[in-house]
Write a protein that binds this DNA or RNA. Sequence first.
DNA 1: TTATTACTGTGAAATATTTCACAGTATAAA
DNA 2: TTTATACTGTGAAATATTTCACAGTAATAA
Lengths: 208, 208
Amino acid sequence: MKISTKIIERMCRMFSHLDILSKENKPYVSSKELAFALGATDYTIRKDLSFLGIIGYGRKGYEVLGLKRELAKKFHLGHKHRACIIGLGRLGTALLDYEKFQEEGFEIVAGFDKSTNKIERIRTNIDVYTIDRLKPIIKERNIELGIIAVPAAFAQEVADNLVESGIKGILNFSPAKLIVPKDIMYQDMDFTNALRFIAACFATQAKP
Amino acid sequence: MKISTKIIERMCRMFSHLDILSKENKPYVSSKELAFALGATDYTIRKDLSFLGIIGYGRKGYEVLGLKRELAKKFHLGHKHRACIIGLGRLGTALLDYEKFQEEGFEIVAGFDKSTNKIERIRTNIDVYTIDRLKPIIKERNIELGIIAVPAAFAQEVADNLVESGIKGILNFSPAKLIVPKDIMYQDMDFTNALRFIAACFATQAKP
DNA sequence: TTATTACTGTGAAATATTTCACAGTATAAA
DNA sequence: TTTATACTGTGAAATATTTCACAGTAATAA
Ligand SMILES: NC(=O)c1ccc[n+]([C@@H]2O[C@H](COP(=O)([O-])OP(=O)(O)OC[C@H]3O[C@@H](n4cnc5c(N)ncnc54)[C@H](O)[C@@H]3O)[C@@H](O)[C@H]2O)c1
Ligand SMILES: NC(=O)c1ccc[n+]([C@@H]2O[C@H](COP(=O)([O-])OP(=O)(O)OC[C@H]3O[C@@H](n4cnc5c(N)ncnc54)[C@H](O)[C@@H]3O)[C@@H](O)[C@H]2O)c1
């Protein structure tokens, strides 16, 4: 049977939680504790892990490090993924220096902007380029992920160029809805929509 | 029957798309077009709208402005919601000046930070305060939404204060998982997790 | 007028996901 | 050693969601 995106989504959050537990040197964790941390139920967690072929130990639960290792292996988490950011404005530059990405294995290796002026002024350890270098640099440096932080009007154009460069995944911070081939993993981070969702939930009494 | 969060989520995105269509002066839109824009199927869209009691017109589809008005009414979208941002660092200050929030009815009326130094240096039209003023200002100015942009270690403390102040919804940009009473609408914007999800999807060939 | 077309609305079927119930298992205490 | 306990693993049931199929409808063209 095929894995559902719901399970993937939960496992990504679980991975993040296991990171915390491992730093606390907790050796085992039960499905109940995991469920609480992820906002799910213990049976769902057990079903998920059993589906993935991950086994726990009676009375103890799951081994924190073993579980983390398994998830890392199955979902390519933890190990290095090379990413770049396109659009180095307010948001883009903040993302460029966000250390958490590097810590979690998402290595931002390049930034791009169309303004030469901006490129020159930016102070960062990461290499920044003008947008016309996008394709060669992505190929040369084997970049897998593109993070779009340009104004909405230019987002589709940037996405098209990323796709042509052979990128595998796109995280889009602009409010534009992009059209990309279906073999490219694509996700929106639409802040305004998140606020809408919160407003809509309390308008209808629904709890997420 | 109770409304599902899936429907709410789709309707928020639909609202955003209707905004674009209305600016293009498109009078009608079909379930098929909406489905394409939202990444759903036409039957799902029709089921959703029919569930909400919204009707279309044979051969034409749904009236763009009417539909937008209905969604605005049912989900409290479009009209004003007062929000504040807590933590005015790299991300917080970018959010403070993000005009799209205001355009969409999310009015950022205040910013808070613990550093007096920072408060003094910030150049913005929005009122900024030190964190000790959080509770009185939220009550006084009738703020409904809190946007958390402080380091993860302080996020829970800030959330607790927001809840005590009577906030209705929280949008959390820190990677911490917060515990809030269940009558408070709460959503995480965890960028790292979004990258994890993309990486995990292409590790497993699942398409979101 | 009639036929054609491009839609909607919705029960019923199919599918996906979650929940339940409980047998099985390892550990610790008595 | 036995018993209590705190877990897991999983079929079966329940629930939620999507898809299908097609009757109904309004606009347009002939
Ligand atoms: N600022 C925020 O807090 C915020 C919040 C949510 C979403 N966003 C979205 O993120 C995106 C960026 O926002 P921002 O506030 O950083 O904007 P910004 O105007 O500060 O920066 C945009 C940058 O993109 C560059 N750019 C424009 N066209 C380009 C192109 N074709 N190729 C490469 N670079 C190009 C510009 O030179 C500029 O540096 C926007 O789509 C915005 O809607 C921003
Ligand atoms: N910078 C990014 O691109 C980025 C990306 C994703 C997530 N985040 C998350 O957003 C949050 C903020 O990130 P940042 O880069 O803006 O950090 P930052 O260090 O630039 O800013 C944090 C701000 O919060 C203030 N602060 C600290 N404790 C506070 C408290 N108790 N009450 C009020 N204010 C307090 C600090 O004075 C500072 O101004 C972090 O949790 C971070 O993980 C940031």
